[in-house]
């Protein structure tokens, strides 16, 4: 069938088929989101630490320095998790043990005792 004008053609556009599971999927996603948010909120120490790091970075560093520091921090933490010695991780990440202690607001002797 041909159409005699554009408007008529546009009106013949096929209506999308709504998947039956859609509502259930959305409701489940919202429930999961609530659960995750509640779990994260419960880990107060982790959140507080992250907020502190961000404030420190904001106060003392330019954007480029902050990005570099954050990247270094990630490398440092991953290195520790993988069991790489603290001094090697420190070299790789560009962060000293003192830097890490300052960012984490803990005594640098503690850091040294724990990881070095």
């Amino acid at each position: 069938m041909m159409f005699d004008d554009l408007d008529q053609l546009l009106k013949a556009r096929k209506k999308p088929e709504v998947p039956e599971y859609l509502s259930a999927r959305i409701v489940a996603a919202a429930a999961r989101h609530s659960q995750e948010a509640a779990t994260l909120a419960g880990v107060v120490g982790w959140r507080a630490w992250l907020q502190m790091v961000l404030v420190q970075l904001q106060a003392r560093l330019s954007v480029a320095q902050a990005a570099y520091a954050l990247a270094g921090l990630v490398v440092f933490v991953v290195g520790i998790e993988l069991g790489v010695q603290a001094d090697s991780t420190s070299i790789l990440s560009g962060l000293s043990v003192g830097d890490l202690a300052e960012f984490m607001a803990i005594d640098d002797n503690f850091v040294a005792a724990e990881w070095v």
Binding site: K15, P16, V18, P19, L22, S23, I26, V27, A30, A31, S34
Partner: peptide, 17 residues
Amino acid sequence: HQAFAQLVERHSGLFYS
């Protein structure tokens, strides 16, 4: 959450389209 689920049930098809 019940109210949210009701909104989803009522309108998800419309907004999916």
